[in-house]
Amino acid sequence: MESIVKVRMADYAICSVPQKITTIGLGSCVGIVVYDSGSKVCGMLHAMLPDSKKIRNNSNRSKFVDSGMEDMLQMLVQAGANKRRLMAKMAGGAKMFDFIDDNENTSIGYQNVQAAKQILEQLGIPLVAEDTGKNYGRTIVFDPESNDLEIKAVGQPTSVI
C-alpha cells in the first residue's frame, strides 16, 4: 500500500517506508526534508519564516525554520531515526514578487534558505542537495526508500535531487 503524507503550510510531518511525503506550492516558504537512510524514516517541514526569536507572535512553532526543525528532529528521533545518520535536502525559498524586497539577498525566501542552512550546520546534518531561489513555486515529494526528492514546477520538467 502506497500512501502520501501531506504536509500543510506552517507544519511538519514524518513518514516512513512505504509512505512518501509531500508539500504543495512552496513559494518563498522553504521545504526541508531530514531523513535517516538506515531506518528509512523522514520528516518534512514547510516553514514560512526564518527565525522565531525575531517575531513576537511565535506560538505556532512550525511556522519558523528554527523552532520547526527543533520539534521535527525530536519527533524523528522518537520515530526511530538515528541522529548521527541524518541527512537533509531542501527546496523552495523563491522570490515570488518584487515589491517588498529590493534584491534577492534580502528576500524572505533567501532568508528562509539561509536560516535552514545555518540550523542544519549547527545540528551537524549534512545538506546533500537543494533546489532553492529563483522566482517560481515548487511542489515536492520525498521518497524515504530511494531518498529522492522530486520537484515539480509550472512549465518545467520534473526534476529529482
Binding site: G25, L26, F97, Y136, V154
Partner: peptide
C-alpha cells in the same frame, strides 16, 4: 506571476 496558487498566495500569507 503565473504559478501554482499556493506559491502566489503564500506571499501575502508570509507577510
Amino acid at each position: 506571476s503565473i504559478d501554482m496558487a499556493g506559491a502566489i498566495l503564500s506571499f501575502p500569507a508570509i507577510v
